[in-house]
Computed example of a mutant assay.
Amino acid sequence: MAAIGFALLLIAGSLSLSGCKAHADAEQSYDTPSGLPVPRWAALRAKEVNARNGPSTDNAVLWTYKQPGLPVQIISETRDWRLICDPSGGVAWVSRTLLTNRKQVLTPAGQKVQIRADPNETSVVKAVVQPRALVGLDKCDKAWCRVSIDGVTGWLPQARLWGAQDGQVCQRPDLLTGLGPPPAS
């Protein structure tokens, strides 16, 4: 009889947990030093961010970023360092203190994009944005993202924005090839 009561308790517990899936997802912890998922998006916080070949200030500086707000994808982490990939495909370690979770995206290089009033191609154009512009990201829904720049809020196609992808866009480098900028084409 006790076994039946315990089984019913387990079933009731699983039913109550399944009804709270959205709440459970919001509180999900990942097996990473930060407890956050990897990969994930971040942005550079400072005017100068040193990109290093390892997770320590003892490691060599590969280059220095000079564009605060630049979106990057975190592809690995230690307690104090994040392995990031940038829009050019460069991969390096940066201090976690130099990153923010503020949502920024980058418009495509070589072409202007039109911010639309509504999430469709026939909607009124509210503004035209220069190539490689940093744009604030509010949310993405059904292949369109709500963005803002210079006081203008509207919609851009998600596929045209670097930093708005849902999944992994950067690969963790092979240990034998090392870190650094993408190979010249």
Score class of each variant (00 low, 15 high):
94 V>N: 07
107 T>N: 07
12 A>H: 09
77 E>I: 11
92 A>P: 01
31 D>Q: 14
103 K>R: 15
7 A>T: 12
71 P>R: 13
127 A>E: 09
40 R>V: 13
105 V>W: 02
100 T>M: 02
116 R>Y: 02
46 A>H: 12
116 R>S: 09
25 D>K: 00
28 Q>H: 06
92 A>D: 00
165 Q>S: 15
148 S>P: 00
153 T>V: 14
79 R>M: 10
7 A>V: 14
145 C>E: 05
24 A>H: 07
114 Q>C: 06
152 V>L: 08
148 S>V: 05
91 V>K: 15
21 K>W: 05
109 A>H: 10
118 D>K: 13
12 A>R: 12
116 R>L: 02
116 R>I: 03
25 D>Q: 05
113 V>F: 10
107 T>E: 06
23 H>A: 12
152 V>D: 02
75 I>L: 09
49 V>L: 08
28 Q>D: 04
44 L>I: 11
60 A>Q: 06
127 A>N: 01
139 K>F: 15
143 A>W: 07
44 L>R: 08
14 S>N: 02
110 G>K: 10
56 S>M: 06
135 V>W: 06
95 S>R: 01
153 T>F: 08
79 R>P: 00
126 K>M: 15
54 G>Y: 05
167 G>F: 09
147 V>P: 10
49 V>S: 08
106 L>F: 12
51 A>F: 10
41 W>H: 09
184 A>G: 02
61 V>M: 04
123 S>L: 07
42 A>F: 09
91 V>F: 06
133 A>V: 05
137 L>Y: 08
86 D>Y: 04
18 S>Y: 01
160 R>E: 14
142 K>D: 15
24 A>L: 15
93 W>N: 02
36 L>H: 07
80 D>H: 02
182 P>S: 14
145 C>D: 05
45 R>Q: 12
162 W>P: 01
139 K>G: 00
183 P>I: 12
55 P>C: 06
113 V>C: 03
102 R>I: 05
142 K>E: 14
14 S>K: 00
53 N>H: 09
54 G>N: 03
97 T>W: 04
80 D>P: 00
154 G>D: 05
36 L>S: 07
90 G>F: 02
